Amino acid sequence: MEMPAGESCLLLSRNKQGNQALHEALINRRLQIVCSLIDDMRCCFPLLLMNGELGKSPLYLAVEADAAQIVRLMIDKAKASHQSGGLSLDYDNDGVKSPLYAAISLKNIGILKDLMEFKPGSTRVRDKEGRTPLHWAASLGFVPEILYLLNKCRSVALIQDKHGLYPLHLASARGHLKAVQYISASLYSTS
């Protein structure tokens, strides 16, 4: 269905909470509506980029909803519109949350892989504390995510946050033995 020009403005409009229709559908897990809205966005790629309430982008909300199909649909839409540079995995200082953090928090290695394949350099994305996705995974003790991130880029284990902490420090402080062992082993591995 081709959308009249004026209706695309309605898709971009925000409610009093700062959310668009796409945000509301994602927050309320109305995935069929999300698919419909994304499919109708022929000229409305900006919908995927705009943050709503609490600094969450539609991509972050899709990851948070554990909706791998929607995440892939958004990535495909970004690629098809040649706007993939605009679909960010960053965590910025304005409180915008990284979809990578959501994927790690949910222990969803599949979505994490989709995001990392979409933006391969994202192992070095930092939050306002200077922490990378490996810091996040290490602090939570999530071994599959740690192994995946180390496999992508071992040198991220050598990045300190603003407090001088390496991912190894966070895993140690929180008592995650397996995480400590794998991170430590990666530092001395020659392969």
Rank of each mutant, 00 (worst) to 15 (best):
L100G: 05
D66Y: 08
Y188A: 06
P133E: 06
S155I: 11
G130R: 10
S57H: 05
H163M: 13
L134T: 09
P58L: 04
A78P: 01
S88Y: 02
E64Q: 13
A80T: 00
V143F: 01
Y182T: 01
L187A: 09
C153K: 11
D92L: 06
K113D: 13
E145I: 01
P46T: 01
I27W: 10
Y60S: 02
D114E: 15
L177T: 02
A171P: 07
A25C: 12
E53F: 12
R131T: 06
L11Y: 10
L54A: 12
L48C: 05
R14I: 04
D94Q: 10
L100Q: 06
A65G: 07
L12P: 00
H176T: 01
N108K: 08
G85F: 03
C35F: 05
D66S: 08
L89A: 07
A157G: 13
R124V: 11
I146K: 10
A171D: 04
K97P: 01
L37K: 09
S186H: 02
D66W: 08
Q160A: 15
I111T: 14
N151H: 11
L10D: 06
I38A: 04
Y101H: 15
Q32A: 13
E129R: 15
L37D: 03
D127Q: 13
L100N: 05
T123H: 12
A67Q: 07
Q83H: 03
A185V: 00
D161V: 12
L87M: 05
I183K: 10
L47Y: 03
H169G: 12
I33P: 01
A157T: 07
